[in-house]
Write a protein that binds this DNA or RNA. Structure first.
Lengths: 194, 194
DNA sequence: TACCCTAGAGAACGATCGTTCTCCGCGCCA
DNA sequence: TGGCGCGGAGAACGATCGTTCTCTAGGGTA
């Protein structure tokens, strides 16, 4: 097993275990068992649990935003794309292992004690906001910043609501709200389109 | 020290420590030290940590909603009250010990492992939604359910955004969004009022 | 064939956790 | 006054944590 594969297996195991059970509830030995990588190699690649947690969050950030962007980009109309974000959320909420936002969960658990984790979470939220701002601008809103911030609030709210209630309809409600906000802000006409 | 005072001191200590550092990062001995209540009494009143955590959440739920309702009820106009929720959030976000939603934090940390905690979190969110529904109805919206759900999403999103960014302006953005949504739903004229 | 470096398996270590137990001193009732 | 029970302080216990160490086996090089 080369280094790249060991890293991948470690991060895969870390992601599924940390996300499902929380960070503190999962010991390093459990990651070793799930990954099949020895403890020695684990500590060679990630010299502490905190480093591994931050690496898990940063890789998940890239993948999560990549999957979202790929889904949204498939919509031909730029006016629909901001709303497509919420369609993607609804699909995500329906997945059986959905358990809320990994970044908010990690921040609530460790944010006050780990600067690295807090930084990864802040970076993720900032990137999402940047991405939403681009979508809103492309949809024809002259001043996209405020609306994008509103959409970001709706995204986070929909995620946490779905996590707690276990139902996916918060995505629908957030989508309807986003449509109203976009229309009020002067976006091109697709607001409200199914 | 009688039982009521011991309970109060234990829950006070649990609330400030659990909320600031997370549940798993705080040991029972630290709660004993902060409360001044002996470990023996602690376990007489709360026979396990999980029971204490759930009691902490349920007491916080009552106080949190009580403080919100008191603030909102001071607004003379029922049409303004749904928006006053976000004014209260903005004040809360500015407090130095603000660290996000205690319920979402606890759920992310323990939700998959503790049915009692998960139930307390779900009950809290359901009560908040019930309260918002009443406010929206009183503001003159004929079908308050969907709008109240949207406001609940905005509330949760504003809280988590404020927690991660450390800035209180997500409350303003959420308030503006709520005003647009209420007006679109046919609420009485105060929407958008400062 | 003899040697060395690496990696794996898992024991070991010190710390800390939730929980229980021991011991002691103080206040109440006869 | 003497005994009794309750509560406080904190040691103790077993488990588990993050991290390191030991031991051993195997493969590449002279």
């Amino acid at each position: 097993m080369d280094i790249a594969e060991a890293d991948g297996r470690l991060l895969d195991a870390a992601e599924s275990l940390f996300y499902e059970h929380g960070v503190q509830a999962v010991g390093m030995d459990r990651i070793r068992a799930a990954s099949g990588v020895s403890l020695k190699r684990l500590y060679q690649r990630f010299p502490s649990k905190e480093v591994l947690v931050e690496a898990y969050l940063r890789r998940r950030d890239g993948r999560w935003r990549g999957a979202l962007a790929a889904y949204v980009a498939a919509r031909p109309s730029v006016a629909e794309r901001p709303l497509a974000v919420f369609d993607w959320l609804e699909e995500w909420f329906g997945e059986p292992d959905f358990r809320g936002c990994a970044f908010i969960n990690a921040y609530g658990e460790l944010g006050s004690g780990s600067a690295g984790v807090a930084g990864a979470v802040r970076d993720h939220k900032a990137e999402v906001l940047r991405y939403l701002t681009g979508l809103v601008r492309a949809a024809g809103v002259a001043d996209p910043g405020p609306v994008a911030e509103q959409l970001a609030v709706l995204v986070d709210g929909a995620i946490t609501t779905a996590a707690v209630t276990g139902a996916a309809d918060s995505a629908r409600r957030a989508r309807e709200a986003a449509a109203v906000l976009l229309e009020a802000a002067g976006a091109a006409g697709a607001a409200g389109a199914a």
